[in-house]
């Protein structure tokens, strides 16, 4: 029973990171109808920058802030310089360009930082403290829950309570009509990419210290888990992404706890295949409202 509880909390903590990363994928999907396969590589690039800054300044938190700001800039840059010029008549084009970006980013990171794992320090202890005699949660887990929770709340407020959020939603759903109403659609698209990449960077900063450390491919498995989470949630739904992230986190935690850690990566892929075959619109798909 203790083991089950431990795995549950561990799963929720991982799942929170997947949720944030899936949220980043959903943000771009909603804004641009592209699955940003470069999200993981982009997050790793900003994490390298963040740890360089943290090493130079001696402050993890300055590095953390730099990661988020670098994410904003990188996201905006990728949209303005690359994605804007991709012909979107076939969805495959955006995918191929994103995969090309992955290769470029991972190659450049390898040239600059080397292709070996570098230690990435966590800002809080990862040793679990005891609650009622059972070691369940570490300070770092609490930090992860707090950070992801804050992201979810801030994004919800942005999209539902602010004029900019309304503009972003309208621009995504009906670009031509939005232009006629004075919405700068191109700017909203750039903002969507910037926000998504910043959320992705934050998720990267949260997950990298819990894995093997910094490496150009450090986010590859995380990306697959988060992508599965996003698909599980229907790709279109922020709430779906969060729930999907938690579900995937829990499943992986139970599988690696009871069946062995080596099974987990295969289990993610198996889950992705099952979801795509059985519920391609996700668990929380709403009826297709839009026909035109």
């Amino acid at each position: 029973m203790d083991r089950f509880l431990f795995l549950t909390f561990d799963g929720l903590s991982r799942g929170a990171v997947y949720a944030a990363f899936a949220l980043a994928l959903v943000l771009i999907w909603r804004a641009a109808r592209i699955v940003n396969f470069a999200q993981g590589a982009m997050a790793v690039a900003t994490a390298y920058v963040a740890y360089s800054v943290a090493d130079a300044t001696g402050s993890y938190w300055i590095g953390f802030l730099v990661a988020v700001v670098a994410g904003l800039l990188l996201g905006a840059g990728v949209e303005r310089v690359v994605m804007r010029f991709v012909d979107h008549s076939s969805p495959l084009n955006g995918v191929v360009v994103a995969l090309g970006l992955v290769l470029i980013i991972q190659g450049v990171l390898g040239m600059i930082y080397g292709n070996e794992f570098r230690p990435a320090a966590a800002p809080f202890s990862r040793d679990a403290f005891e609650i009622g005699g059972v070691a369940l949660l570490s300070r770092y887990d609490l930090f992860v829950f707090g950070a992801v929770g804050a992201v979810v709340v801030l994004l919800t407020l942005l999209f539902t309570r602010t004029p900019t959020g309304l503009r972003m939603r309208a621009a995504a759903f009906a670009p031509d009509v939005s232009r006629l109403l004075g919405v700068p659609v191109g700017g909203m698209l750039t903002l969507g990419w910037a926000l998504a990449a910043a959320v992705g960077s934050l998720a990267g900063m949260l997950v990298i210290p819990t894995e093997l450390g910094l490496h150009p491919t450090a986010m590859d498995i995380v990306f697959i888990s988060a992508f599965t989470a996003a698909v599980l949630g229907g790709l279109d739904s922020p709430i779906g992404a969060v729930l999907g992230g938690l579900i995937v986190g829990l499943l992986l935690s139970y599988i690696s706890g009871y069946l062995g850690a080596t099974v987990a990566p295969m289990a993610v892929l198996a889950l992705l295949v099952v979801v795509l075959l059985s519920r391609p619109d996700g668990l929380f798909a709403r009826s297709k409202a839009r026909t035109a």
């Binding site: 004029p163 309304l166 503009r167 939603r169 309208a170 759903f173 009906a174 009509v177 939005s178 109403l181 919405v183 409202a289 839009r290």
Partner: peptide, 12 residues
Amino acid sequence: VTELTVEENLRL
């Protein structure tokens, strides 16, 4: 914009 509410459409 069919995904937005009446009020949101008007605010837009």
